[in-house]
Every structure is written in C-alpha cells, then in structure tokens.
Design a protein around this nucleic acid. Structure first.
Length: 190
DNA sequence: AGGACGATTAACT
DNA sequence: GTTAATCGTCCTG
C-alpha cells in the first residue's frame, strides 16, 4: 500500500520518525524495481531553522519546500551530490525530510552497476542512496502520491519507540545553536 | 563580480 | 584522522 498525501501532511518530525522501516520504491523505465527499507531520516523545519535551506526564504532552489506534501525536494550540493527529500507538513510552510540511508531489498544488480562499491556502501548515505536510485534534478518536485508514481513509499507498520534512536542532524557544524543540536535525525536501531 | 561554503564522499596518510 | 573534488547558491561590495 502506497503512502498517501495525508501521511506527509503532518509535522516533519512525525513524518521523519514514521518513515523509518517503510519501503522506498523506484520503478525504472524498463520495469526494474529498486527498493529498500528506510533506515535513517532527518527533518528540516521552516525558515527559522538555520539548518534548513528555507532559512533564506523562498528562492528558485527552495520553492519546492513550500509546495505540496508528498512531493520530492531534490537538491545538488558539494558540486557533485544529489539529495532526496520528501516535502512535509503543509503547503506554504517549508519543511522536508531528508532520506539519509536505506537497507537495499530489490534491484541490487542495478544499484551495483551505478555505484561500483561494496554492497554495504550502496545506500548508506544520502548521496549514495540518491545515486543508487539515479535521482537528480529531473526528479525535483515529483509527486510520489500520484496513482501512477514510479517513485514512492510503501507502507509498513510504524516502528516502536524501542526500535529507533535520535541524534543531532549530521553535517551542519557551522549552523548556530540551538538548531545544530536539535535531535532531528532518526535512525533504525541496528 | 567575486568569494565562501555546503543536509557528502572517497581516497589518502 | 585529514583532505581533495567540484559547482550552484547566496551574500557582500
């Protein structure tokens, strides 16, 4: 069962926590199914959150964050990496959830061809996950809730409070407090 | 117009 | 543990 818009139209912290354990799916043009269990997420919440791209307001880059929940927010960084997020909360409030890692299920051969790394390094980072799924600018603003979507999330039971951990968000050492330390990173317990 | 920096990764010592 | 890679975006002047 595919997650519908009502799932994403909630606070980003809720969406980040409940995406853990669910299955990210991408169906390639040739029908190949790529999938994995979402194992790490991170929430970015509003213009006041100095770690969120929307801190600079609505721009060409960030306009998608202000859009409809359930759409993707994709961006390019460090001159070489793409990142995949799902827009959360409500329209006109910029909030999103970054997908930082997943445990591969289907399409390992396809991912191996794209990544050329050991299996454990196929999707254990945000840019690695995006590369394994071949996510780039072409997927900016893609509606994962549309009936015929080829990039979407499949439902699974919500993870219990004992099965995940939280910690400060990764890779934002220059963001001022208190934003730098808010425990808005969610990970499945290993 | 120019420069600093980034929601990272891989290769190095 | 350290650092190069590499370029779009935003801020300063």
């Amino acid at each position: 069962m595919r997650l519908q818009r009502s799932f994403f139209a909630r606070p980003a912290l809720t969406v980040a926590r409940e995406l853990l354990g669910k299955t990210l799916v991408k169906i390639e043009p040739d029908g190949t199914r790529l999938s994995g269990t979402i194992s790490e997420t991170e929430a970015y919440i509003g213009e006041l959150d100095l770690a969120c791209h929307a801190k600079a307001g609505k721009t060409k880059r960030t306009q998608g964050l202000y859009g409809t929940p359930g759409l993707t927010y994709v961006y390019f960084t460090y001159g070489m990496h793409w990142m995949l997020n799902f827009v959360s909360d409500r329209s006109d409030f910029p909030a999103g959830v970054l997908l930082r890692a997943m445990q591969p299920i289907d399409g390992l051969d396809c991912m191996r061809a794209r990544r050329k790394r050991p299996d454990r390094e196929l999707t254990n980072g945000p840019a690695k996950l995006a590369q394994a799924l071949a996510i780039s600018q072409a997927w900016y603003g893609y509606d994962s809730c549309q009936p015929k979507a080829t990039l979407y999330v499949e439902d699974a039971p919500v993870i219990s409070w004992a099965q995940f951990t939280t910690q400060p968000r990764v890779g934002i050492p220059n963001v001022p407090e208190p934003w730098r330390s808010f425990p808005w990173n969610y990970q499945l317990q290993r």
